[in-house]
C-alpha cells in the first residue's frame, strides 16, 4: 500500500451514525400471476399442477355428460374408464399384455441403443466415419417405419420378431443422428486439452468424449423411448394376439370405447413411469450434472 494517499482519492466518512431510525421497509410492486420468467415455489407449482389436472378431468367429465345419452357409450366417463381398467386387470389378465408390451419396448430399445449409441459417437468423433454412414442413414431416416410392416410380416410373420424389428427400425436412425449431434456438441477444447496432455486416441474417446457426451445422449435416449411407445401400438395393431395395442384393437372391433381409453391411459402412465425412471437414473449416473434448483 502506498503511504501517502493520492490527493484525488478522498476517504468517505459518512458512516451511518447511531440513534437513527431504520430505513423504511421497501415495498416491492404487486406480483402478478403472469410475471415474465418468474418460477413459482414448489408448493405453488404442485397446486397449479393439481388445478391443471383437475381442469383436464373436469372437461372430460363435462364432455361425457354433454354428449347426448344415445352416444354416451362412445365418450365414457372417468369412472367408466376406471372400471374398464379394473376389469381388464382383474378378469382379462391385462398384466400379461402390459408386460409383453414393455418387454417388446425393452428388447428393441436395448438393441437400438447398443448399436445406435456407439455408431453415433464414432460418427461424432471421426469425420471419415461420418462421411461413410451419414448419407445412407439420412435416407433411412426419411423412410416411415410403418412402411416396413408388410415387409416385416412377409419375413417374420405375425411374430414378436416382426414387432421388435419395427420398433428397432423406428428408433435407431433418429437415435443415431441425435447421438451424433450430442457428440459433436461437446466443447472442442476438451478433446484439445486431452491431446495436449498426451492422451492416446483411445483415452480421448473413452475417457473424455464419452463422459462429456453421455448426459446428453441419455437425454436423447429418454426422448426416443417415447417414440418407441408410438410404434408399439402400430406394431401391435397389425396381427398381434397380445400386448396393449392388440387389446385396444380388439376392443375397437366391439366398440368398447371404455377399454380403448383404458389402454390409452395405461400407455400414458407407462410413458410417464419410463420418464421418471430415466430422470432418476440420470441423477444417479451423472452426479456432476445434477441441475441446481433455484
Amino acid at each position: 500500500m502506498s503511504k501517502s494517499r493520492d490527493a484525488s482519492v478522498s476517504s468517505l466518512e459518512n458512516l451511518p451514525s447511531e440513534n437513527v431510525e431504520a430505513a423504511p421497509l421497501y415495498i416491492p410492486p404487486k406480483e402478478r400471476f403472469l410475471e415474465f420468467r418468474r418460477q413459482p415455489s414448489t408448493q405453488r407449482a404442485s397446486v397449479l399442477a393439481f388445478i391443471g389436472a383437475l381442469a383436464f378431468f373436469g372437461l372430460w367429465e363435462a364432455g361425457h355428460y354433454l354428449t347426448p345419452a344415445s352416444a354416451r357409450k362412445f365418450f365414457p366417463s372417468i369412472g367408466e374408464v376406471g372400471s374398464a381398467l379394473y376389469m381388464l386387470f382383474a378378469e382379462r389378465n391385462f398384466l400379461h399384455d402390459v408386460s409383453i408390451s414393455c418387454w417388446r419396448i425393452f428388447v428393441s430399445f436395448m438393441a437400438a441403443s447398443a448399436i445406435g449409441v456407439p455408431i453415433g459417437i464414432l460418427m461424432g468423433c471421426f469425420g471419415n466415419i461420418r462421411a461413410l454412414f451419414n448419407p445412407t442413414l439420412t435416407a433411412w431416416r426419411y423412410l416411415p417405419a410403418a412402411s416396413f410392416i408388410p415387409l416385416l410380416l412377409v419375413w417374420f410373420g405375425p411374430t414378436d420378431q416382426a414387432k421388435i424389428a419395427l420398433l428397432f427400425i423406428g428408433v435407431i436412425f433418429f437415435l443415431i443422428s441425435l447421438v451424433l449431434d450430442n457428440t459433436t456438441a461437446i466443447q472442442k477444447e476438451f478433446v484439445e486439452a486431452g491431446l495436449t496432455m498426451g492422451a492416446s486416441r483411445r483415452v480421448i474417446l473413452t475417457g473424455i468424449v464419452v463422459p462429456a457426451a453421455l448426459p446428453a445422449i441419455f437425454d436423447s435416449m429418454r426422448n426416443m423411448i417415447a417414440v418407441s411407445w408410438t410404434y408399439l401400438v402400430i406394431a401391435e395393431i397389425v396381427g398381434a394376439q397380445d400386448g396393449i395395442g392388440a387389446v385396444m384393437m380388439r376392443a375397437g372391433r366391439f366398440l368398447n370405447v371404455d377399454v380403448i381409453m383404458a389402454g390409452i391411459v395405461t400407455i400414458g402412465a407407462l410413458g410417464l413411469l419410463t420418464d421418471v425412471i430415466f430422470r432418476g437414473a440420470a441423477r444417479v449416473l451423472f452426479p456432476w450434472n445434477v441441475e441446481r434448483r433455484s
Binding site: E189, T196, I208, A212, F286, W288
Partner: peptide
C-alpha cells in the same frame, strides 16, 4: 503434433465436469 512436453491452458474452461 501435440505432446505433454507442451501443456496448454485454454480460454474456455477445460476442467472436465465429470471429474
Amino acid at each position: 503434433g501435440p505432446g505433454p512436453d507442451r501443456g496448454m491452458i485454454f480460454q474456455a474452461y477445460t476442467s472436465f465436469p465429470w471429474l
